[in-house]
């Protein structure tokens, strides 16, 4: 009889372990019910149960896994399943957007000098390697600030240094430079806002 109770206990222990997540009262009900079932099945034999009898009764119950699956399938989720937070990729930190915008702005504005040109290049490299922006944003973020912010000092130098240019010429160049400057600055603001929002998405 010892061997037969050992098998039953093993089955109930396995089931108990699998039902850990269940409400304690419900878990006790399931385990009591199964234990009772085995006792009843063996009691109905009319003779001392053999190991084979116990194996058959346990087999007719189904595996502990089958019983546990049924028990857990009807369980209302205790808490919504939260997907594990994905690791923040490289160059997606909160510091990236302001750094990119700062470097590009400074670098482009003073690109007539060598050091600011290096800052501009650093800013653009960071922009292109960071996952915070789409390819289109990266392309516009490269072209417009460089043309707009970078062309203003150079352009104004050319325009206003020129000797007595035609009045309409100044106006045309002036408007074009102003438009480019605005486009460049707007692009930088958009990069800062969108990049910042995506960087915050990785936080917490």
């Amino acid at each position: 009889m010892n061997g037969t109770t050992d098998r039953t206990r093993q089955y109930l222990d396995d089931l108990a372990r699998m039902l850990d997540a269940l409400d304690p009262q419900e878990r006790a009900d399931v385990l009591d019910g199964v234990r009772d079932h085995v006792d009843s099945a063996l009691g109905a034999l009319g003779h001392e149960p053999t190991a084979a009898d116990v194996d058959r009764v346990l087999a007719e119950l189904g595996s502990p896994g089958d019983v546990a699956r049924e028990a857990l399938a009807g369980r209302a989720p205790v808490a919504p399943v939260v997907a594990p937070a994905a690791a923040r990729p490289a160059l997606a930190g909160m510091w990236v957007p302001p750094t990119v915008v700062g470097l590009v702005l400074l670098g482009a504005a003073f690109s007539v000098f060598v050091l600011p040109l290096a800052l501009l290049l650093a800013g653009l490299v960071l922009l292109w390697f960071s996952p915070l922006w789409t390819p289109l944003e990266k392309a516009l973020g490269t072209i417009l600030p460089v043309l707009g912010v970078g062309a203003v000092p150079l352009g104004s130098l050319l325009v206003f240094r020129a000797d007595t240019p035609s009045q309409s010429g100044i106006t045309l160049w002036g408007v074009l430079l102003l438009a480019l400057l605005v486009a460049g600055l707007v692009t930088l603001v958009v990069l800062a806002v969108r990049g910042g929002r995506r960087a915050r998405g990785w936080a917490a």
């Binding site: 409400d23 019910g33 009772d36 007719e60 089958d66 019983v67 009807g74």
Partner: peptide, 30 residues
Amino acid sequence: GFDIARRLVADGVLMGGEGTLYPLLARLRK
């Protein structure tokens, strides 16, 4: 339980194994 299980597995359609009855009974009691 044992009697209910016997009745429900008799045709082999309603219940796969007798053991799945007990989670159902526990849920119904709850």
